[in-house]
């Protein structure tokens, strides 16, 4: 049986962070999920990361001449955007390949995040 959906006042408020990802090797969405969780747990620990309410909403690859370049929208609980941003900034490598995650914007809805910051 499915749980009944919470009334709007009891739901968590989310914000959406748009990030640019540069990598030396190809990464999949699942790999990116583990990179984000790993980065947060490493920097802030398990207890604080529990507040973030992380979820990857969008993930796309964009053509780049020399590197692998991706963009993603990450869901995060309102009030913890700065913490997530810091944790992602401190991610340095994945499986011995260099990776760089740069936050390019924060938005209240997925639609505006995609419209404003995503490369089409």
């Amino acid at each position: 049986m499915k749980l009944k959906v919470l009334p709007p006042t009891l739901r968590k408020n989310n914000h959406y962070i748009v990030v640019d990802i540069y990598s030396q090797c190809e990464i999949t969405k699942n790999e990116f999920i583990s990179i984000v969780w790993d980065g947060c747990i490493r920097y802030f620990g398990e207890c604080h990361t529990a507040n973030f309410n992380l979820w990857i909403m969008r993930f796309q690859q964009i053509e780049h001449d020399s590197l692998k370049y991706y963009q993603s929208v990450i869901r995060c609980q309102r009030g913890f955007e700065d913490d997530l941003r810091v944790a992602l900034t401190c991610v340095n490598n994945y499986k011995h390949d260099r990776i760089s995650i740069i936050t390019i914007g924060i938005s209240g809805t997925i639609k505006s995040a995609v419209n404003k910051f995503f490369v089409k």
């Binding site: 540069y22 590197l67 941003r85 810091v86 900034t89 990776i99 760089s100 740069i102 936050t103 390019i104």
Partner: peptide, 18 residues
């Protein structure tokens, strides 16, 4: 040293703030 180390100014701001 490479473009992987370059972050946005606001990323640095929030890092030092943390």
């Amino acid at each position: 040293k490479s473009i992987f180390d370059i972050k946005s100014p606001y990323d640095l701001l929030y890092f030092f703030k943390s």
